[in-house]
């Protein structure tokens, strides 16, 4: 093949840059990439948990119905806060700054309630004798896996609360725009998504029969 490929010289448009590859802002792309990486982090942790659980014969199944109800309440609150975040982002897109800020703060409130419920649950399990390295029911690995997975998730929730608060306050003062709020929302939905895997595998597979 010998088609002569001629490149024509001379300045063309006013654009100084190639268009972004995925037609999204680069901040959003960073968040997406971070989410992918973080998903693998959680994945690896869940794999480690599954590996150990699989190989342990005396794996305890301590969760009572009350724990499951509590877990569902937590799910409800986290998914609801995801929803309120959507409402906030929608309002921000529509230019309704006041409403967006209100709904963002409601989201943060949801996150905080989630964290409180979580800590309350941790404390009650702690009261029942569950420790990071031992528990009264069976393999000591249970507490290690439970606390490390839910702990990492809780860290993400608290980090998300702080991040969304900061972004919302910045948005209020005009330092951030609605795109940044949307990126905060993206992260928040991801935290929600992780919880969807944590609940069945960490809680529901370990209920008392």
């Amino acid at each position: 093949m010998s088609e002569a490929h001629l490149t024509v010289g001379g300045p063309s448009g006013v654009e100084t840059q190639e268009a972004p590859a995925f037609a999204i802002s680069h901040k959003k792309l960073v968040m997406w990439l971070f989410i992918i990486s973080d998903a693998i982090t959680f994945g690896a942790l869940l794999f480690a948990y599954g590996y150990l659980r699989n190989a342990t014969t005396d794996w305890p199944r301590p969760f009572e119905t009350s724990s499951v109800i509590n877990a569902y309440a937590m799910t409800f609150i986290l998914v609801t806060s995801s929803f309120t975040m959507l409402v906030a982002v929608r309002a921000a897109r529509a230019g309704d700054k006041g409403r967006a800020i209100t709904w963002s703060f409601i989201t943060v409130l949801g996150g905080l309630i989630f964290a409180l419920l979580h800590i309350k649950e941790w404390l009650s399990l702690f009261g029942e004798g569950l420790r990071l390295f031992a528990n009264p029911w069976g393999s000591g690995l249970f507490g290690a896996a439970f606390f490390s997975i839910t702990g990492l998730h809780l860290t993400h929730v608290v980090g998300g609360c702080i991040a969304i608060t900061v972004v919302t306050l910045g948005y209020k003062r005009g330092r951030y725009d609605q795109g940044d709020l949307e990126i905060g929302g993206l992260y928040w939905h991801f935290v929600d998504l992780v919880w969807m895997f944590v609940v069945p595998f960490v809680y529901l597979l370990n209920i008392k029969h």
């Binding site: 499951v68 409800f76 069945p200």
Partner: peptide
């Protein structure tokens, strides 16, 4: 999403 979560609980039992 909430319904699926509830469904998971049903399956668990």
């Amino acid at each position: 999403i909430l319904v699926i979560s509830a469904l998971q609980i049903l399956i668990a039992y």
